[in-house]
């Protein structure tokens, strides 16, 4: 990661930094994604709203099945039947993606909106050289290119994510997991998107390599000023990498706040529970046990979605659904405790 490199559009990062303004890249409003089943619709994502600003990493956390990945897939318009977007808007650079047809989407995907999928390193084609895979991505979207320029561009890209140029002609099986993961990051940024969605980008890596990949992501963000949504399950990793953290529970957004605030002063009882249950290597503490199961997503109870597991449940929680309100500057919480 020492290679000198000029980002393709340094201007974008600079302007954001200089003006200090918070330009909105992605604005998700009241998004609803339901999966239809014979016994009723599963509300995988129910009325979720959030924004991603220019040049920030937004972390998206929550337990399995809470709708993190579904939210990401909905933003890419890649939700597969029987699932579908049943309501809401997804504004990317002020253009709504929801009404778009396949052809329009093809222009948006990868150009403006890139994905680093879960287990990304297994998404490389095993019988194509690394360079050919990247070339294919570029030429599909930008048309035929001059070979020499293309090679130069790919090598520049390798420098950006800290890959040595000797892997140019290698096949995926010749690379380590961490290197493959960085090839995927390189492919995500090759067309200079405004938003990258990374779904558990380091979940199959050892801690040491995880750290290298995490630092590569931070490096890419700094140099290109690109925005990212980082979906993850490791609160420690989120604490190290993201700028703001969004917590989901059972298809709902329960809290959004800058990461330092949320770790210091979590407001929603679910977030408190999540943070308390992180095992630490700094202190040996009694295990924090939590009881209760998430309700059936087909029949959400009236009122707050967390009522069945909440240690601080009140009467109002059983009847009225708390809205996601800005309790403190830039700190949004959906909980009646702060009415």
């Amino acid at each position: 990661m020492t290679t000198q490199i000029n980002p393709r559009t340094p201007a974008r990062a600079d302007t954001a930094a200089q003006s200090g303004s918070r330009e909105v890249v992605l604005d998700v409003r009241n998004l609803k994604v339901y999966y239809s089943t014979p016994t009723g619709d599963v509300r995988a994502v129910d009325d979720v709203s959030f924004k991603v600003y220019q040049g920030e990493i937004l972390g998206l956390v929550g337990e399995s099945g809470c709708g993190k990945t579904t939210t990401a897939m909905a933003i890419l318009r890649m939700v597969q039947p029987p699932g579908g977007i049943v309501g809401g808007q997804i504004l990317l650079d002020e253009t709504d993606l929801v009404p778009m047809n396949e052809k329009e989407l093809r222009d948006i995907r990868w150009n403006a909106l890139a994905l680093i999928p879960q287990g990304a390193m297994n998404s490389l084609n095993p019988i194509m050289r690394i360079s050919d895979q990247i070339k294919e991505a570029i030429e599909t979207h930008e048309g035929k290119q001059n070979g020499r320029q293309l090679k130069e561009r790919i090598l520049t890209l390798f420098g950006l994510v800290g890959l040595p140029s000797r892997i140019y002609d290698m096949y995926p099986h010749e690379l380590s997991g961490g290197m493959k993961q960085r090839v995927c990051i390189a492919m995500a940024i090759v067309l200079n998107p405004s938003l990258i969605i990374a779904d558990e980008p380091t979940s199959a890596l050892d801690v040491v390599v995880q750290r290298v990949v995490g630092q590569t992501l931070l490096d890419v963000k700094e140099r290109l000023g690109v925005s990212m949504i980082l979906i993850g399950h490791d609160m420690g990793l989120q604490a190290q990498l993201v700028d703001r953290l969004a917590v989901m529970y059972a298809g709902h957004m329960v809290e959004i706040s800058p990461v330092s605030t949320i770790f210091r002063d979590p407001l929603h009882p679910y977030t408190q529970l999540l943070i308390e249950s992180i095992p630490s290597i700094k202190e040996r503490k009694p295990l924090k046990l939590t009881e209760g199961l998430t309700h059936d997503l087909r029949n959400p109870p009236p009122g707050c979605i967390f009522q069945e597991r909440c240690p601080k449940v009140m009467d109002i929680c059983r009847s009225a659904k708390p809205p996601l309100d800005e309790i403190k500057p830039d700190h949004y919480v959906a909980c009646h405790l702060y009415d």
Partner: peptide, 27 residues
């Protein structure tokens, strides 16, 4: 020591400890 330094600390105010880990060829 390297392994323990690389564990991400669930506290945004404490950044990864130790030195920058490996360069590529170390991998």
């Amino acid at each position: 020591q390297l392994l323990i330094d690389s564990i991400p600390v669930p506290d945004p105010t404490i950044k990864w400890g130790g030195e920058d880990v490996l360069t590529l060829d170390d991998e």
